[in-house]
């Protein structure tokens, strides 16, 4: 069955690592824009974009704060690009226990890039505006996506119930179901 076709706005920041000079203007600008009140403080440690810099290995990679993750990866990939070795972490946006990027310095709470959502909207996120070298550029494009309704097979639900009954007993599962469905017109016989 075909789902609904829907248009989605995709906001992209293109990163050209070869153009990055390591000036960290993006960090400065981001921290100012997200300060409360706006611009009231400067602090790259609060920025939702950080430039991973290793001068001795000539690595300059701006990364943008993504999702919080509870656990660090089980291992690391090392990528060799144009003869330079990059850790996977150099491209990873996660706020992760293995490093102190994207954590509020006072509280440790995770930070996440919001593309500088604002009212009225900015023409470009602040980090892009601050990047004079054009290592960061902003693109908005529309993508057509198919909205899929989840198709669940009846046997799969039975497997789940089987497991629950095995673990908690028939009565507990039934009571829970009855409680959850209170007010609804669902009746169940097992």
């Amino acid at each position: 069955m075909q789902g609904l076709l829907r248009k989605k706005l995709v906001k992209e920041i293109k990163v050209d690592v070869d153009k990055c000079t390591g000036c960290r203007s993006c960090e400065m600008a981001c921290s100012a824009f997200h300060a409360v009140p706006k611009y009231s403080s400067l602090n790259p440690a609060r920025a939702r974009i950080r430039v991973i810099i290793d001068e001795s290995r000539d690595i300059y990679v701006p990364i943008r704060a993504g999702e919080y993750t509870q656990a660090e990866c089980t291992g690391r990939n090392l990528y060799t690009i144009n003869g330079k070795e990059y850790s996977e972490c150099s491209f990873c946006p996660s706020c992760c226990p293995s490093r102190d990027y994207f954590k509020e310095p006072d509280t440790g709470l995770p930070l996440k890039c919001d593309m500088c959502e604002d009212d009225p909207p900015l023409a470009e996120p602040m980090c892009v505006q601050a990047c004079q070298q054009s290592a960061l550029t902003y693109v908005e494009r529309e993508e057509v996506v198919e909205e899929q309704k989840p198709q669940v097979k009846l046997e799969e639900i039975e497997i789940v119930f089987d497991a629950l009954v095995k673990k908690h007993g028939k009565k507990k599962v039934m009571d829970t179901f009855a409680r959850l469905s209170k007010g609804s017109d669902v009746k169940m016989k097992v």
Binding site: T21, C23, S25, E55, Y60
Partner: peptide, 8 residues
């Protein structure tokens, strides 16, 4: 590459 100083 060419690099710059902080916020320059």
């Amino acid at each position: 590459r060419q690099t710059g100083c902080y916020n320059c």
